[in-house]
Design a protein around this nucleic acid. Sequence first.
RNA 1: GCGGGCGUGGCGAAAUGGUAGACGCAAGGGACUUAAAAUCCCUCGGGCCGAAAGGCCUGUGCCGGUUCGAGUCCGGCCGCCCGCACCA
Length: 873
Amino acid sequence: MTQARYNAREAEPRWQKTWDERGIFATRNDDPRPKYYVLEMFPYPSGRIHMGHVRNYTMGDVVARYKRARGFNVLHPMGWDAFGMPAENAAMERKVHPKAWTYDNIAAMKTQLKSMGLSLDWSREIATCDPAYYRHQQKMFLDFVRAGLVERKQSKVNWDPVDQTVLANEQVIDGRGWRSGALVEQRELTQWFLKITTYAQDLLDRLDTLDRWPEKVRLMQKNWIGRSEGLLLRFMLDPATTPNAESELEIFTTRPDTLFGAKFMAIAPDHPLATAAAKANPALAAFIAECKRQGTAQEVIETAEKQGFDTGIKAVHPFDPNWTLPVYVANFILMDYGTGAIFGCPAHDQRDLDFVNKYGLGNTPVVCPPGVDPKDFVITDAAYDGDGRMINSRFLDGMTIEAAKEEVARRLERETRGNRPVAQRQVNFRLRDWGISRQRYWGCPIPMIHCEACGVVPVPEQDLPVVLPEDVSFDKPGNPLDRHPTWKHVACPQCGGAARRETDTMDTFVDSSWYFARFTDPWTTSAPTDVAVANRWMPVDQYIGGIEHAILHLLYSRFFTRAMRATGHLGLDEPFAGLFTQGMVVHETYRKKDGAWAAPAEVRIEGPEGNRRAFLIDGGDEVEIGAIEKMSKSKRNTVDPDDIMETYGADTARWFMLSDSPPERDVNWTEDRVQGAGRFVQRLWRLIGEAADIAKAAPAQKPAAFGEAALALRKAAHGALAKVSAEIEKLHFNVCVAHIYEFTNAFGDAVNTKSDAPDFAWAVKEAADILVQLFQPMMPHLAEECWAALGHGNLAAQAAWPEADTALLVETTITLPVQVNGKKRADVTVARDAANADVEAAVLALEAVQKALDGKAPKKVIVVPQRIVNVVA
RNA sequence: GCGGGCGUGGCGAAAUGGUAGACGCAAGGGACUUAAAAUCCCUCGGGCCGAAAGGCCUGUGCCGGUUCGAGUCCGGCCGCCCGCACCA
């Protein structure tokens, strides 16, 4: 006897236990079936899962369960991105060890994830803070060193004064640290770099092959890599004006066509020529110091005025020995792009124009827009960067921009000075090498040793892993590894003399750049991967995560895949064949009279949509209903997944997450809709119970013929099956949900007839089975409960996906809408394969059509077979 | 500034160039009930005609275009969102 109400709190843990005991989600590497690797971005173990996790992991689980039912050997693992700053912050604030804090959090979050009923293979669980994981990362680092993919260099770095560490360019958002939010400062430090620029061209080229990635993400990466083609060009300097023996200035330009519009040269404040010139010029030195003081913080750049300082040096125009250009030090020239020097053509570059207008250097237009008389073409305060023909440019006059670029390149390439061509074509990238040194404790130690005598020496492989010491203190800011009394003191592996360990640890983005490969065989101890196994599983067929990783994590992982291929740890080019970026979970905000935020759980809502008011449950004060925003601790508009699981169960939460909003868009969490999802769970349970009673009258054999009611139900069931299957493949989960609702309505109507005719009973049984299987990927616990109630001996999670009987879906007669002059006026029912002429005749015979024609003769009748008919009068 | 995306009922949304608003939420009405919850049924873009059945007009941010036919394609605006941003 089935219960009246479905008790999720009782049923969900029971089925989780069953899945666990039978080990049905453990994936074997020697399974002969075709593979499917579905992966969601693994979480940082912050302590509790949030609704964003619930949404992300529900989507992945739907795909995993669906593909499993479709007969694939599915790899669906989970792990922990476990190194990082918050563990150290907790250590400082609460005097707990980062390791203990992290592992406690992992345990708590694992319990939460398990309560969601995710079909994960927990036997492959990895934590990046485990030496069993990071030892392989250290090994790969050493391999990368040997392969020339690592560099140690001094560079200007982004320094986060709050976290007291270096940040990669990618981690600086609007001039602030991505985690601390502090204004980033500039510092000169010696850092370890991974040479991601080695693959800049390949990372760019292969974006085109990632046809199952969102266009948006590919574009963002393309812009980030930022390729530009141009000319590297050496200007001769007037010797009488130069300090020391500097004789030339090398610049990079993408606009060699505008050379005859040049009015000045500009170099970065930290350009060697600037430094040399400043030695004899205190005013210039002061100017340079001022530029450096301003730094590169984005906020400063946006508002800073173009400023320059005339060095007195003169550069000679490459096409005219009698034409010299003043060389300025300018605050808007970056040392780390191109050569840190430019020639300025104010007429066609806004920055250059702003600059000359300030210093009175004038401008000469050299590109004239089509349809404009060159005599009338004057530039005042808006530079022209559009298309046109060359003017005021001697031998270039009349050429297109492209032709002029080519002509300049051709002439200067041929010309030599000091055995070298004056110019050469060059490709430049915006992408910088990836600085991975972090002055932190809770990260993967960089396995290098500094020896006074031998220099920088790698840790011998037999000494790996370099394990983090556990006896550290967090009572002072800075890096505890640096302060540790003994850890950093080691013997040099080469000379045996006293040496010092590298105390910087790796950026945690390194950890997440290869975990997907480790999941393929996390048991291998001798190497990061079993290459053969990894190659069989990779690439990840469907990767799901937040858009916030569009550049950072995804670009680093693409780089790592290439670096691992180069060092023999992986044999493919691209790690993620399919990528899906899901939207955020958002919620209304509530503001109390005193300006403080109120949490949803503290608020009671009254009134209908359009006139809703919110009151504090405690005290009854009215609170202001604010904007719908991303769930965040600061706005207190979060809903705790545990509370939802407790009240409604995991299936309701999962169903809600998939309903309504398209997965790539933000979903607004509202109590009403969650309740709606909860009601649907109960409704399904009730309906399946009633269907199970009817099904008892079903014959064992499929009936030879079906009555009208039975046939209609079968059509609904197989139609839903076909549609849901197609939409799930496209990850259109909200559309799947709508089709399941629609089918459930039809199913409910059928069940309510209470007929017990054998053919009908058989159809009900078939429809019930299909319905349960359709929602199994979304609501797996309820599905098991229903599946058992329908008398199945196996688990719903292991049942094969049913095949839609397409023959049922082909109607012999169809009803087409009939338009007259594009407006619908009638319907016509014809044979499915009726000839167009017959359809036309039937349509013209319709009374409604004749009425709409109002005596006019039809000029044309357009029949789109099985679609629509349009009569044009 | 550059690049990209989006704009459909009270709300979330659906719609290979082919019946706009499927499906859900909210709302209103009704049934059942001592009552409530739960459940079930009906209505639900706007306007007009009709007792009703039904019919007509209008409608996918705005203006144009292509087409037998446009939410969908093209051009130009307006608004919102996102990414990048002194990259030579």
